[in-house]
């Protein structure tokens, strides 16, 4: 168990079946504390399902996993206290203001009033949302919504934050700013577990894994992977691995 406490995430043969369909097929990997871990794969490869199991949103069918030292079968509620999560679908409340969303999510994670005030002020300044603080979140442009969603996901300083395609549909400038936020959070010691489709973003990660048809087919640093597949870019690495996929993209 000692090793589990050292690692942010430990995953052994984690599997999820839906009937006959094996969405996630015996995946095994470890994520170090403070690491930015890229979780890549084509659409339908099983990334989101794997992530949902690690977050305690979905029961694994078999295999083992520990997140922040807690077991995914028995200690889901402890996991939930230690992580942040940003889903693929924007899920802040659109009919609440920026400040109200921050207050709500900070509040339910048990931040004290003083901490809540300090952090929401800092967050508003960092994001440059001073003018919009009292506007409904629904009225913000997508890029700002995503940055806000990320900041809210880490407002309680979780050990690990899970990001499911956080930059989908966002322009390159905003994506850059988004990664600045990720680096800033990683600098505070938060482990980042991120899925993405953008191969330039994969390069920002310390290590990446690539999932094909429910299995982890490769796991290494971006540099090593390029070397191993004799590729110039991550795009090429990804293409070489993913073109063998049998599963149709959804």
């Amino acid at each position: 168990m000692n090793t589990k406490e050292q690692k942010a995430i430990v995953c052994r043969d984690l599997t999820k079946r839906f009937g006959d369909f094996v969405a996630v097929d015996h995946i095994s990997f470890e994520v170090e504390r403070g690491e930015i871990f890229g979780f890549l794969g084509a659409n339908g490869a099983g990334k989101t399902t794997a992530m949902r199991m690690l977050c305690g949103l979905s029961h694994p069918t078999s295999g083992q996993a520990a997140v922040a030292g807690f077991d995914v079968y028995r200690q889901q509620e402890s996991i939930k206290r230690s992580i942040g999560y940003m889903s693929q679908k924007f899920s802040l409340y659109e009919n609440l203001t920026v400040l109200e969303n921050i207050e709500f999510f900070g509040g339910v994670y048990g931040l004290s009033d003083a901490k809540l005030n300090r952090r929401s002020e800092r967050l508003i300044t960092t994001l440059g949302l001073g003018q919009e603080a009292r506007k409904m979140v629904g009225s913000l442009p997508l890029g700002w919504k995503q940055k806000l969603a990320f900041s809210v996901a880490v407002i309680h300083d979780p050990a690990i934050v899970f990001l499911d395609e956080p930059t989908g549909g966002v322009d390159p400038v905003t994506r850059r700013q988004f990664w600045d936020l990720i680096y800033e959070a990683a600098g505070r010691g938060i482990t980042i577990f991120v899925t993405t489709h953008y191969m330039d973003e994969a390069e920002y990660c310390n290590r990446i894994s690539i999932m094909v048809d429910g299995r982890v087919e490769a796991l290494d640093t971006p540099g090593n992977l390029k070397h191993r597949f004799a590729a110039d870019s991550m795009d090429e690495v990804f293409y070489q691995l993913a073109r063998g996929a049998k599963r149709a993209a959804d």
Partner: peptide, 14 residues
């Protein structure tokens, strides 16, 4: 439907 329940389910709210 909106998807906000995910954010609730992943939080420590009982």
């Amino acid at each position: 439907e909106i998807g906000t329940i995910e954010q609730i389910n992943v939080s420590p709210i009982r």
